[in-house]
């Protein structure tokens, strides 16, 4: 009997391997073996999945209120921002994954994708591609940060019941640190009480790092978040931000004390994702991301086997469509 007799079983084995590798089961197994114990617990399916996930949230506490059908973002029981939950927010959109997969396929398809943007934005978007390389360190720049905050602002304007959100430029803190007035980093006419939430991205120059602040205007509350877990970074920015914010209030309001909450979890496990964490925190504080859970962020950033499923790919899709994607996660 020749070696040809062994060929069919070998072929069957290869076919089976290919089938297993391409299945979602294999994806789940890979995720399972690649992550820590705490994350494995999060991956266990649970009948009461929503409450199970929400209790694990670090950062501003989220309470799920089923009778009202609303997610309520609360900061230590002091503040609540409400908006109707998007009932469709259950599964990622198929066309999003198909498109991003095509864009990420190669340099020519990527070129087609970025051709719709100006040259500066196109260069910045390259940093947003999943799986950073030596050539692309994955760091986000101010162009991406500003553009994404604009999308958050626009999404908030479309929701009549949602909070009124205003994003500041990341250069605001640079001006304040130099002891200057905000100048051109601010709109000509800016009235604090026109908004419910101010989003302030802050660049930490000595660490080449992004942190984020959300000011809940009516409640004189500042939520700060550093994905590197450094309270020092937040304090450094607060020294200039807080007096400036105080100056925007009237004398009566200035007598009320500030509530400041600093959040240091979830923590990034690499040296390039801080911009994503900061943007997701700001999106979340705008009550526009009921289904993106901060504690789940790390495992959702990008998947080496299916890069089109990660948050970076979702952001590419959002930039392409010029609007936030409400569905998924």
């Amino acid at each position: 009997m020749g070696s040809a007799a062994y060929l069919p079983p070998i072929l069957v084995c290869i076919a089976l391997s290919v089938e297993i590798c391409s299945s979602t089961a294999w994806n789940a197994l890979r995720t399972w073996f690649n992550c820590s114990d705490s994350k494995r617990e999060q991956l266990i399916p649970d009948k009461s999945e929503i409450s199970h996930q929400l209790t694990r949230i670090a950062g501003p506490r989220v309470v799920y209120d089923p009778p009202g059908g609303r997610h309520v973002l609360m900061a230590e029981g002091l503040v609540s921002i409400q908006h109707p939950i998007d009932r469709r927010a259950t599964k990622p959109v198929g066309s999003m994954e198909r498109h991003t997969k095509t864009w990420l396929k190669g340099s020519s398809t990527w070129g087609d994708f970025v051709s719709r943007f100006d040259s500066d934005t196109a260069k910045s978007l390259a940093q947003l591609r999943p799986s950073p390389t030596v050539a692309r360190d994955g760091h986000l720049d101010d162009i991406i940060i500003i553009r994404y905050i604009k999308l958050i602002e626009e999404a908030s304007q479309k929701q009549s019941a949602g909070p009124r959100v205003k994003g500041m430029l990341p250069f605001l803190n640079v001006k304040l640190q130099l002891g200057l007035s905000p100048g051109a980093t601010m709109p000509k006419s800016f009235l604090l009480f026109d908004y419910d939430v101010l989003l302030i991205p802050v660049h930490i120059p000595h660490a080449r790092h992004w942190v984020a602040f959300a000011v809940l205007v009516d409640y004189r509350t500042i939520l700060g978040y550093d994905s590197l877990g450094s309270i020092g970074n937040l304090d450094w920015a607060m020294k200039t931000l807080q007096p400036w914010l105080d100056s925007l209030y009237d004398v009566e309001s200035q007598r009320k004390s500030w509530t400041v909450r600093h959040y240091i979890e979830p923590t990034q496990s690499n040296n390039y994702d801080c911009g994503i964490y900061a943007l997701m925190f700001m999106r979340w504080c705008s009550a526009l991301a009921p289904s993106i859970l901060l504690s789940k962020l790390e495992v959702k950033l990008w998947n080496p086997l299916w890069p089109e499923k990660g948050i970076r790919s979702r952001m590419l899709w959002e930039f392409a469509r010029d609007q936030l994607e409400p569905r998924g996660y």
Partner: peptide, 8 residues
């Protein structure tokens, strides 16, 4: 004029 910012 401001200098561009980048971070990770």
């Amino acid at each position: 004029n401001m200098i561009g910012q980048e971070g990770g």
